[in-house]
Nucleic acid binder design. Sequence first.
DNA 1: CGCGCAACCGAAAGCGCTTTGGATATCCGC
DNA 2: GCGGATATCCAAAGCGCTTTCGGTTGCGCG
Lengths: 343, 343
Amino acid sequence: MKLKELSAKLGLSQTTVSRALNGYPDVNEDTRQRVLEAARLHDYRPDALARRLATGRAMAIGHVIPTSTKHEMVNPVFADFIAGAGEAYAKAGYDMILSMVGDADEARVYRDFAKTRRVDGIMVHAPRTGDTRIALLQDLGLPFVVHGRVSAEEASYSWLDVNNRRAFQRATELLLDLGHRRIALLNGLEEMDFAMRRRAGYQEAHEARGLKPDAALIASDEMTEQYGYHTAHRMLASDAAPTAFIASSMIIAIGVRRAIEERGLQMGRDISVVSHDDALSYFHTPDTVPIFTSTRSSVREAGQLAAEMLLDIVAAPETAPRQRLLEAILTVGQSTGPAPSTG
Amino acid sequence: MKLKELSAKLGLSQTTVSRALNGYPDVNEDTRQRVLEAARLHDYRPDALARRLATGRAMAIGHVIPTSTKHEMVNPVFADFIAGAGEAYAKAGYDMILSMVGDADEARVYRDFAKTRRVDGIMVHAPRTGDTRIALLQDLGLPFVVHGRVSAEEASYSWLDVNNRRAFQRATELLLDLGHRRIALLNGLEEMDFAMRRRAGYQEAHEARGLKPDAALIASDEMTEQYGYHTAHRMLASDAAPTAFIASSMIIAIGVRRAIEERGLQMGRDISVVSHDDALSYFHTPDTVPIFTSTRSSVREAGQLAAEMLLDIVAAPETAPRQRLLEAILTVGQSTGPAPSTG
DNA sequence: CGCGCAACCGAAAGCGCTTTGGATATCCGC
DNA sequence: GCGGATATCCAAAGCGCTTTCGGTTGCGCG
């Protein structure tokens, strides 16, 4: 059933039927009802391909997800972020098209999206320090929102981020308040903008008290369980072992816990752990008292908000860029306690 | 730069330019070169919207991912599966459009995809036992591939699956060979087809030796770390504790390990654990001797193969349905050992 | 009664490509 | 030198919608 047939059946022009269905004003309410009725009856739904060409809008948002350089890793936060974003798109009748691409091909993909008009906007994931994508997208004139930030010129584009610096500052302060002085930071890859901010927060908290973190206690790598385990294992075995860990992700923290328990130590009593928790659904803890003390921020919610922001921008591209900074919630769980009194 | 302008600049008709670019035969090789050159020079790329309408092909594949009923969980295997599939699509010039949707709305989404012609084919995820989606899709006449299977009428549609029954049968046999007699199964939700198959394999292995598993040792739930931990914790505390666990996912296994170690037991010596490993990238272990004994099967590879299969079917819809059964690799790691000799 | 103004509806022109159905020119064998 | 391949190109008709620009009607009003 296509528009032509439907309008023939109704004895109306395609124009009127189209208008009736799309809620335009100048069509009699009675005929609109007739049209709607007939459309329902024949299960008519306009061909998206034709509609897109006619309107010039692709009714789609592109998410281009970089597959990490080192291993071909897919960061699990994407799943949740996308789930949140997808909800917003579905509500607005937009498609979400995903493009997983190696760093090398990213620029090509963006250009292609722009040229072929396959998307109305783009969500930028995992910005790196000094990321060139923002400039490229501005140049292409394609609406976009960055999940995260790139340090330079934050006002010139739209982004949504969690306050990573603040979150890690607070986590560090908590541990310092508990008397810890040797606090390890298991960060993500420091080419990532968020990782730099986290490290900055960690350092600022130290400096505010005239302390200086031991460089040997700062690690940086792709956020896997293995990384958490091996790094914690190594650090705990050293002469100047830390009494506390801050982990950049729940998965790292799980590895840290394993290393701690393997040494016969108890997390929360002997060694404290604070983790950043992206509230990934499959780690969601229904426990009343959470295992891990964490700085929590729902990636899924971020996805939804970022998507809504992007849709707004697509609808009104000429307005000023929007920014939104979410605060992480610091929740104290069982994994932190006072620093063991040292001899 | 649109086709019209490009052809004007070349002094050729749109027809010829279009043909030249799309590799049609009846165009002089010289002029084809001229056209290609000009296209490169002006960075011409055909408008996807127009092309789609003209060809009637959406050049897109839909992945509709059910967000689990219980919690709003996003199964992390999707990330890897999609990464693999995305590769195949990119190579073929197809878009991947993602639709995350509650169980209730699935049928609506499928119908909508079919009616509005937004996709050329659909990947069906996470089939449940007695899933009605296959019948619906067959009815709609939309090409599709199922990742997994639904037990009835396996020959009437295309699917790609791992041999879950066999994998769990072998895992169970391994443990039985090691002398274990009380083997717990921490399965996924048994409304999922794959979970039923895994359970069947587990049971068949027992029955082949005239054994009967204790129903109290079989659990089934959403595959989270918490579930693994709590269930193992409970079972280990009972009078008739298991000496081995089979976990349906790595994340469950991590929870099991935690429960084991928390009791002061050592995994691999006191309690054995075999896990099914979907080879998710962020759990990828670069260790030479893997921690967990596991039945391993790369979800990412499955995604790629399933996508290629689907593209084949889209290209030739009238051919017979394809099926492909992947075998999991059983790798012995450090988490299994002989059953402790009981008094 | 004639004019202006709403209110309602339609014909037709796109949207930017692909594809059909010829045209034209060249070339071959006989 | 002629019928018929063969190679090369083009005009124009879609694809199924939206949207522009008018065209009718009906009605209030001077």
